[in-house]
């Protein structure tokens, strides 16, 4: 469904990504594991078009999307949930969802605010509250719900567990599992192996802008050597 080949990216003179290669199959939950600065976020940003890749190919549903604008890519059915949540703080929950709304897409569930309130009951209680007056956990749910309003075929989730309390992180993992059951395809970035173990089918380990290792999640958890070498756990 999504293929990345030889992806390079630079910020100014700094080389951030060097030849990233990865694929995501339909219905899969794939995790990019690595430390801060390894290039996880930049990989996701390059896919959605927020960072212009300096080389490489990105194919989504058979179309080359490298170098196209974020809005064009998003309208092909690629959803993006940023690390910093980036809720529109002045807009209400309802309005935040409205910004994310896109036309129904063939072959994927059609999301409405009502369906999302059912998935995230907390949000239903605060439809008219400005985004700025929500807690971190509530904002994290809103930012996912907002992206789902675009009826995506695949979502990119950037560090969904960062800065959240353990209980909320568990709820986040449950929500991702629920989406997966409905057939959603997910590519997420994480630092927490615990979280990755709970949600992902397959993992890529990224370090200094390169993919160092690829494995099924079960295999990775069993491979003490790789975990020690790349993740130090």
């Amino acid at each position: 469904m999504l293929t990345v080949q030889g992806l390079d990216a630079h910020y100014g003179l700094a080389h951030i990504l060097a030849g990233i290669e990865l694929t995501v199959q339909r219905g899969e939950v794939v995790v990019l594991l690595g430390r801060n600065g390894a290039g996880k976020s930049t990989t996701l940003k390059s896919i959605i078009g927020l960072v212009r890749p300096s080389a490489g190919q990105i194919t989504f549903e058979g179309q080359g999307i490298a170098g196209r604008s974020p809005s064009t890519i998003a309208r092909l059915g690629l959803g993006y949930v940023p690390e910093e949540r980036r809720i529109f703080t002045e807009l209400t929950v309802r309005e935040n969802l409205e910004v994310g709304r896109q036309k129904p897409r063939q072959g994927v569930p059609h999301w409405t605010p009502e369906k999302l309130y059912a998935l995230f009951p907390n949000l239903a209680e605060m439809k008219d509250r400005p985004g700025g007056r929500m807690s971190g956990g509530e904002q994290q749910m809103l930012t996912i719900a907002r992206t789902l309003m675009g009826n995506p075929r695949l979502i990119l989730l950037d560090e969904p567990s960062e800065g959240l309390s353990p209980l909320i992180v568990e709820q986040m993992a449950d929500a991702i599992a629920a989406l997966k059951r409905d057939g959603m395809t997910v590519l997420l970035s994480e630092q927490s192996l615990h979280f990755a173990a709970r949600v992902a089918d397959r993992a890529y380990i990224i370090e200094k802008g390169r993919i160092r290792h690829e494995a099924g999640m079960t295999a990775l958890l069993a491979d003490a050597d790789v975990r020690q070498r790349y993740l130090a756990v």
Binding site: G49, S71, V99, G100, G150
Partner: peptide
């Protein structure tokens, strides 16, 4: 609504599929 959202974070509005 889109304009108000873009006033705060235009990049994010683009990433949500708005031209």
């Amino acid at each position: 609504t889109l304009v108000r959202a873009a006033t705060q974070d235009r990049e994010m509005v683009g990433a949500l599929g708005v031209d």
